[in-house]
Amino acid sequence: MAEITVVLPPGVGLHARPAALFVGAAAKSSCDVTIGRPGEPGVNAKSILGVMGLGAKAGEEMVVTAEGEGSDELLAGLKEILETPEGGHA
């Protein structure tokens, strides 16, 4: 299982718009993907309601895991989405 840690950039945190981008990218993959806080069980990263339900705020550390074919590429892409401040997704 591949795993990365990301610090959310300044902005509004993982609310509807960034969450939708993140979940949209995760859902395209065949991997099992989770996101959560370090040391806590993650939620299904393909569930927008689960991801929004984390209530993750700017500056928080989040752990993303992926299992399956192409998990490393997927995680690299998800990291980029999470680290782009809002307004940067033109």
């Binding site: 509807a16 718009r17 939708a20 949209g24 939620v43 299904n44 569930s47 927008i48 689960g50």
Partner: peptide, 16 residues
């Protein structure tokens, strides 16, 4: 459109 497609994503939520 952004708001409505985020809503559509909620309707298709696997956890739901």
């Amino acid at each position: 459109q952004e708001v409505l497609s985020a809503q559509a994503m909620m309707a298709r939520d696997p956890d739901l």
